[in-house]
């Protein structure tokens, strides 16, 4: 069974935590180690961001981490190599998240076959809505890479249903209309409740994961009350940004990760 499906099946009684980290941030040499550390501290799924120079769905935090990774010379092949290294030690589900242009430039066929060989499980492309997804759906399917579509508070019921049909693994609920970035919990909560209720009626095939704006355990629990789990990216990257490269920066980051999942620090 696919690693993503297995996580949702095995961990029915807890909130699934998916962590987003820009591949190559804060340094190309850190990504593999960080992913393994995240897993040990409670991460259930890893989203590895493929950096892009013009990430128009991202706020300042992920723009920043993407620029750092690009300046350090990150490449898509390098990211596949990271996945190969992670796979030597871990079976954590890995979802790549990246804008379509670098993927197209790598070559679609080459991208999917290499991804599958490396041990990638899923793919999220924030600037490839359902309307354009046809260009990769068959290739993804053929190579066993699960495509995950996003839905937003202004997505119609009909499009939600279509997203559910076309997605595998899970469907990504974008909690607010906006770009990525940590927000005040109350700001997200207000808009998200109605949206989640509506999504649950339309999304019947896949689990739901909610993301955008979550920054701590309380937010995560509140916002994901009615769904299978939650996704955190910007708040994690901010934590790295505030600690790297101080002594013991990784311990501080892992404490944050553990708190996020369990509500108390690792010991």
């Amino acid at each position: 069974m696919n690693r993503i499906n297995k996580v949702f099946k095995d961990k029915k009684n807890e909130k699934i935590m998916s962590l987003f980290i820009t591949a190559g941030y804060p340094d190309i040499t850190e990504t593999v180690d960080l992913v393994l550390g995240f897993e040990h501290n409670g991460a259930d799924i890893i989203e590895l961001g493929i950096p892009f120079s013009d990430p128009l769905a991202d706020g300042p935090t992920i723009q920043y981490s993407s620029n750092i990774a690009i300046s350090k010379g990150i490449t898509i092949q390098g990211i596949f190599n990271m996945v190969v290294d992670i796979r030597k030690e871990s079976e954590i589900p890995i979802v790549l998240m990246g804008y379509i242009n670098p993927i197209l430039r790598f070559g679609l066929e080459n991208f999917f076959t290499t991804a599958a060989k490396a041990g990638v499980d899923g793919l999220i492309v924030p600037d490839l809505p359902l309307d354009e997804g046809g260009m990769i759906e068959d290739l993804a399917h053929l190579n066993g890479i699960q495509l995950i579509y996003l839905i937003a508070p202004n997505t119609s019921d009909q499009r939600m249903q279509l997203s559910d049909q076309k997605s595998d693994g899970f469907v990504y609920c974008v909690s607010v209309t906006g770009v990525t970035g940590a927000r005040e919990g109350s700001e997200v909560q207000q808009s998200v409740d109605k949206f989640i209720q509506r999504s649950k009626k339309s999304i019947t095939k896949n689990p739901l994961m909610v993301g955008f704006g979550i920054k701590n355990f309380t937010d995560a629990q509140n916002i994901s009350r009615e769904v299978e789990g939650f996704i955190v990216g910007s708040a994690l990257i901010e934590t790295i940004r505030n600690t790297y490269p101080k002594d013991h920066w990784k311990e501080e980051v892992y404490t944050f990760v553990h708190q996020l999942k369990y509500g108390y620090p690792n010991t």
């Binding site: 809505p129 359902l130 354009e132 579509y149 996003l150 202004n154 119609s156 499009r159 906006g178």
Partner: peptide
């Protein structure tokens, strides 16, 4: 051409 935008912009 086409519409390569985040889902949030599709309704707009």
């Amino acid at each position: 051409g086409g519409k390569f935008v985040p889902e949030t912009l599709i309704p707009a």
